[in-house]
Nucleic acid binder design. Structure first.
Lengths: 208, 208, 208, 208
DNA sequence: GATGAATGAGATTTCATTCAT
DNA sequence: TATGAATGAAATCTCATTCAT
């Protein structure tokens, strides 16, 4: 109860920070905006977090950790690489559907911020690519995926497709309604596995 | 010669801004850093540009315009969609090879900056996706690409793969030596057209 | 026992404040540092003292009162001015030997702090000079000290010598080991009474 | 002219800082008070000085350097130790007469500030004592001063007498009018050389 | 054109103090 | 008594921008 890590107010500040970072951007917003959004005095923000940066670090680390765990669980649970990647894409798209602000903050403020937070959390970011890469390596061994595939490239490409779709949603360049999530997830998997002109993959799925 | 748009000093300031934005980030750097990099007094920056933001706007608009022109030219010149997209990927990778700082700035500071420059230049950014989308629409009509493909999605996915590779180079997560540019370009096209498990595409190219 | 003035915790807080003020300085330290040093919650500091300033006021007033009492007792008890001043110097040096932190705080944070605590406690500080001055006035009447001596000046000079020695110890500019206390006390009295070149005084004492 | 070290505005800021530090104390005053006193925007303070602390450092170092130079010159120029110390006392008292605020700042905020500026400038402060100590060592060799004198102690005591007189003036505990400077200087030298009861020294001077 | 001194709004952060428990 | 979460005034410092030269 008195553990500061589980304080309700702390959680409220974190949630407010997500909304404010998403709405105004990390650099454009002020700590007092976050405090106001959380309906607390802004001194309390500094009671729980040493700095504005620490807020974003905490948000990212917590969420990214959840994603890494999810990827590991998927890797352990699903049978084929195709289903694994589909599950990963599902998880990320579902994350966006449920918490678009959080995903926006992670992508816009961390994942591409090569000069600040991205550089700081490179290990965490790279870990995601590595996990996806391992799934692909295994798929090559099983014959699921072409042998000559560059695993590292393919992992990044797969993640790039997903992140770009998210970016499209964030910017309003791609329709984001409920009905699109599933279709887009399917399309992403199809693209990565079968390509734009691969009838075989399409047929295989049609027959299934 | 006396056209302020073509002044040598102006160009030096712009080039310096690219280097400094790439090195330190737009928010972290100071106008005086840019002036120092350009070896001019920082008052001169304000002689040529109304604000720090205008520098980044200018950098982005100029370069993005060149890219849009290139895409249009490629669209007009190449025979097949595959070759068109290959040429576009080539152009972008080549741009990075020649001017990595410039591309880093565009991707990191503009293209994903949903709350600031990205939002400001959404029309320009969207135009690129639209052009790629048109290439794909045409390809569907010609039967080059599966009919059921969601063109908007596919355009973003294609660009997402490219941007992610660039991001990998920027972060040092992907090997960036000279020899990788071509191979990666090929892999990107192959992935998008043939997918990870499409032998047909690979064979087709092997036979060519 | 239940008198808040004599509470054990209160005393612990006061003692902790002395250590912390001595170690970090009044301005540089935080109330929570004092509470941590006293091993109490920092709310308790405010239970016993109305403010951080009140802590220093209490420390100073308490100790300075002890010193004034001691001076008065010495004045009443010792026969000659020389012995009186020697006893005063002894008392102060002894105070530093036993409680260097306390004396450091009094000198550094109060006695010379012309814009804050020094000004606030000017009456108390001046009282010490006045008492010493009275001893010297009496000594002049008795012929112990030169008639033309400016008593106020001499009192301050005497105290100045003592305080400077303490400052030297505080800063580590003067050797502060046990063996130096007595020697320094003698030297201070000799200097004030006999000066640097007065053999007579030295001889007189040697003969005694 | 354009040397920032000799800028008029910079000098105005420094002079204003002296007045404000003297009037309100280093900790109690705000940088904006200094800027207002100097009649400049407070950004300019940071144009010339990196921090509020740097202002005090600069003030101290500049002035203390002048004093050390003066002491060295006096050491080289005067014949006897008595005259040397008299000249040093003169110089310091004269400094206070001409620039009481400056001397107040140096004594109150630096020379006794064991936890902040005093500690930072200990070398400079100690150098003054060392120079005075050398004068006394030489005086012992020449027989001017008792052989058994502890030089380090005596140097600090001498300086302590002077500083205490200054403190008395600062606090208004000692009369500070023009006519007192000379008398006090004489008294300080007499005290240190002849002591409170040394007729010999007094006679010697009376006869001179 | 070119410079950099000058400005001041505004941001982060600290920490003495209050107060509910 | 005792605690420490909560508050917010206030301080330092940064830096984009202006402007006199």
């Amino acid at each position: 109860m008195s553990d500061p890590e589980t304080s309700e107010r702390r959680a409220a500040i974190l949630a407010a920070a997500v909304r404010v970072f998403a709405r105004e951007g990390f650099h454009a917003c002020r700590v007092s905006d976050i405090a106001a959004e959380a309906q607390v005095g802004y001194g309390l923000v500094y009671h729980y977090f040493p700095s504005k940066e620490a807020l974003l670090d905490t948000i990212f680390l917590e969420r990214w950790g959840v994603m890494l765990d999810a990827i590991r669980a998927i890797d352990a649970g699903e049978p084929s690489a195709r289903e694994k990647l589909a599950a990963i894409a599902s998880f990320i798209f579902e994350s966006y559907r449920r918490e678009p602000d959080l995903m926006k903050v992670i992508i816009v403020e961390v994942t591409r911020a090569a000069n600040s937070f991205g550089a700081r959390h490179l290990d965490q970011i790279g870990e995601a690519y590595a996990l996806i890469g391992e799934i692909l390596s295994e798929a090559i061994r099983r014959g699921e995926v072409r042998a000559q595939t560059d695993v590292r490239f393919a992992a990044m490409a797969f993640y790039g497709v997903i992140e770009q779709v998210l970016t499209g949603w964030i910017f309003g360049l791609l329709p984001a309604g409920e009905e699109h999530f599933d279709r887009t997830k399917q399309a992403a998997i199809e693209l990565v596995f079968d390509g734009l002109c691969g009838e075989r993959g399409a047929q295989r799925r049609a027959g299934a």
